[in-house]
Simulated assay, not measured.
Amino acid sequence: MATITTRDGTRIFYKDWGSRNAQPILFSHGWPLTADVWDAQMVFFANKGYRVIAHDRRSHGRSDQVWDSNTMDRYADDLAELIEALDLRSVILVGHSTGGGEVTRYVGRHGTGRVAKVALIGAVPPLMLKTEANPGGLPIDVFDGIRKGTYDNRSQFFRDLTIPFYGYNREGAAISEGIRESFWLQGMMGGLKGQLDSIRAFSESDFNADLAKFDKPTLVLHGDDDQIVPIGASALSTVKIVKHAVLKVYEGADHGLTQTYQDRFNADLLEFIET
């Protein structure tokens, strides 16, 4: 297992595939998953000649489970330490859901000196929580429900969450039990305390100031039937902040579109990277 040890002593697991001399693409996963959710993209882009890296966020997957520091700032700093440890330059950052927040906070805290492009996929910025300044967000009760479900019966909650996550509750949806089982397995690899902390990190972090610092080509890709991160308070708001961002909306698509629309997504991401 490949790991780095961060300055606070946390071991972060990562995968590093493809040619070490190629342009790197770094993938950041959503909650409560792991780097494994990106395997199909990593194989696809490595076969296209890119170096591909994906890590398990602290307290998720094979990385250390820590009691404190499960915050968006620390996630971004872990990402920075991984980028520096591998000496990645002209890196393309791809973040899905919570990973989109991680990538965005990385830009806000560490700049874009090592970054070539950014892709935010079903991402949580600018702010998921409903506030007076963000009336389009989701009420705190939604996130309290996620916390309660995760704490009370994490195993069952993760199984149930796959239904809206992948749009399997929509008429005509082709349900993949394999995808559901993989989601459950990845979720159960993580630490409960860190996963609970992460709910606050992805729902209450305000990314407006981070997005204002974007100065690299940016793709904002979202499904308009995303039941986990509704498009209105996320992608449609992000493109109003990030100058020259490219918005791509998948009609009828769910939150887990990197898997349910895998071939289309891979092709669109490749087009963005190579344009």
Rank of each mutant, 00 (worst) to 15 (best):
D73P: 02
I25A: 05
E271R: 15
G30P: 04
A133R: 14
T150C: 05
Y75N: 11
G100C: 09
H96A: 05
M189W: 01
Y168E: 03
G18I: 04
P139C: 03
T258C: 07
A209W: 03
S19D: 15
K117C: 00
R74L: 10
A40Q: 13
L236V: 02
L269Y: 07
S69R: 14
D254L: 01
Y151H: 14
D263V: 07
G61M: 01
D197V: 10
F183M: 12
G172T: 10
S69D: 15
K240A: 07
G108D: 04
P135Y: 09
S19N: 15
Q41K: 00
W67S: 14
D152I: 12
R20K: 14
L33N: 13
D36C: 07
I53L: 05
Q65D: 11
S59K: 03
L129V: 12
K243L: 02
W184R: 14
G18E: 04
M1F: 11
D16S: 06
F143I: 02
K148F: 09
S59E: 02
A245V: 00
P230Y: 06
G100D: 08
I175T: 14
T104M: 03
I12Y: 05
Y151S: 15
L93H: 00
V242K: 04
R74S: 10
V249N: 05
R20S: 13
H244V: 04
I83H: 02
E204M: 14
S69Q: 14
D160N: 15
T6D: 09
V103Y: 07
E132T: 13
I121D: 03
V37P: 06
Y75W: 11
L270P: 02
K248R: 15
G95R: 01
P24R: 04
S97M: 08
M189A: 06
P139S: 03
D36I: 10
T131H: 00
E251S: 12
L138I: 13
H244S: 14
G187D: 06
I179S: 04
R200C: 12
R51A: 06
I179D: 09
E81R: 03
L247N: 01
T6S: 13
Y250F: 12
I175D: 06
